[in-house]
Design a protein around this nucleic acid. Structure first.
Length: 428
RNA sequence: GCCCGGGUAGUGUAGCCUGGUUAGCAUCAGGGAUUGUGGAUCCCUUAGCCCGAGUUCAAAUCUCGGCCCGGGCCCCA
């Protein structure tokens, strides 16, 4: 290299080479088709939005993790860090009167100013959906089964689905009698499954030992009857309704064919706008960054000035899905190779023009065709064609051209035959 | 933002601890042996110590800072 390259890609971004791009497109295709099987239609929103849209739901604190900037007109903008808020904005702007259910999905890049790790980048892709209108166990269990099936369609084998309910968790926490700030701190510990710290925390905040113990036992229950039994004497109607709802969802999930679904009342999703059902899907193989998907029921539309409407959805980390597939040594199908490799035998006369013309004719016939662009010798050209997996080589030489023909060599069998130019499309 | 490990041709690596030959090997790429016939073999060529400062007669090697990558935290909409 005479000159050293002076530029590197920005931290946390990636270049995708041909092999990797092929794999990503393949996985994209499999997942897109899954969303379409459930009746969802793809949409796209702008890469950047007004900053206030993105801070409206989570406060100014998230600016630290946003790529924000001011444009030449003085507008405060930011690259989107996720897609739920932009999609809801789109809905409020233009789709409120669409027939329901409105089923939308997306696959787009997002940006967060985070410390990069494996499966965690500053530019990353999310595939996900939003369901607008319906509000029922059937609708919500179908959303969860779509998340599960999308990952299965991608080819991921080992995934763990956990379903919880803020309709259950929130009243339970309220029952502890903490103030708002302490509730949030408790939620954080719950979400991280740090039960020892949580127990200590509750004790410090004056929660009675018996109440704390029962709370901890409840959120760790693996079945709804167990949880109900623990709470039997204190279960209010609000909690009871939430449990019934969750129970319905889990039974319907079973009917939708979702295996390995476990109850996890400790899912808090660290997010203010979730309202009821919540769920997460992990790939245990992935270590620290193992969460592939998160979602649930939420409320953003009123915040953006729209008419109240039930909304639910989820987002799958597309890059992590790829990492999971690689960890599982998923065998990606190999790209279809070139049908014909055209070798001008020398460069005399009109050989190059003939080779170009032949390639055009074959491409019009739908063939994948390459012409030797390196002016290789016949021997080198055949060697190269064999290496890249071409099935047929077409040798364009003067001797045959005089008869209006070329030589077609089958690189697998080694057989070679003379073919008239007009019959060539049938022979490759 | 914090802690730990790493960075040598395009790719994978040896060398570093214990400073001192022309930085070795494999693979890939291009060419040739073979100017009209591939898969083998042989030969040739291109190409590297992440960046900067310091210590030293001498730094890939030791020290410090930066950048980037990986593992773990914080966070994770």
């Amino acid at each position: 290299m005479a000159d050293e390259c002076k530029f590197e890609k920005p931290r946390g971004t990636r270049d995708f080479g041909p092999d990797e791009m092929y794999r990503r497109r393949l996985v994209e295709k499999n997942m897109r088709e899954c969303f379409e099987r459930f009746g969802y239609r793809e949409i796209q929103t702008p890469t950047f939005e007004n900053l206030e849209l993105l801070t409206a739901k989570s406060g100014e604190g998230i600016i630290d993790e946003l790529y924000d900037f001011t444009d030449k007109g003085g507008r405060r903008l930011a690259l989107r860090p996720e897609l739920t808020a932009p999609v809801m904005r789109f809905y409020v702007n233009e789709m409120q009167r669409e027939t329901k259910p409105l089923k939308l999905f997306y696959l787009s890049n997002c940006f967060r100013y985070d410390r990069p790790q494996k499966g965690r980048y500053r530019e990353f892709w999310q595939i996900g959906c939003e369901l607008i209108g319906p509000n029922s166990p059937l609708a919500h269990s179908e959303v969860i089964s779509l998340a599960y099936e999308a990952l299965k369609s991608a080819g991921v084998q080992q995934i763990v689905l956990r379903v919880g309910s803020l309709g259950v968790l929130k009243p339970l926490i309220t029952g502890l009698g903490l103030d708002g700030c302490d509730e949030r701190a408790a939620m954080r510990l719950i979400d991280k499954s740090e039960y020892e710290s949580l127990e200590k925390f509750l004790s410090e905040k004056g929660v009675g030992a018996a109440d704390a113990k029962r709370f901890l036992a409840t959120i760790r229950c693996k079945s709804i009857p167990d949880a109900r039994a623990l709470l039997s004497d204190s279960i209010g109607s609000e909690l009871s309704v939430a449990f019934d709802y969750l129970d319905n969802v889990m039974r319907l999930l079973d009917s939708f064919g979702v295996a390995n679904c476990t109850l996890d009342l400790a899912i808090a999703r660290g997010l203010e706008y979730y309202t009821g059902l919540v769920f997460e899907i992990d790939a245990p193989l992935l270590g620290a960054e193992k969460q592939l998907c998160g979602g649930g029921c939420y409320s953003l539309v009123p915040l953006f000035g729209g008419l109240e409407v039930p909304t639910s959805g989820f987002a799958i980390g597309f890059d992590r899905t790829i990492v999971a597939l690689e960890e599982e040594e998923y065998s990606f199908e190999t790209p279809r190779s070139t049908d014909a490799f055209i070798v001008p035998v020398g460069d005399g006369g009109r050989l190059l023009e003939c080779a170009a013309g032949i390639s055009a004719t074959l491409r019009k016939a739908g063939k994948r065709v390459e012409v030797d662009l390196m002016a290789r010798s016949v021997g080198k050209a055949l060697k190269y064609a064999d290496k890249i997996g071409v099935k047929k080589a077409v040798l364009v030489g003067e001797n045959e051209l005089e008869k209006g023909a070329v030589l077609v060599k089958d690189l697998v069998s080694g057989e070679q035959m003379e073919v008239e130019l007009r019959r060539l499309p049938e022979c490759v």
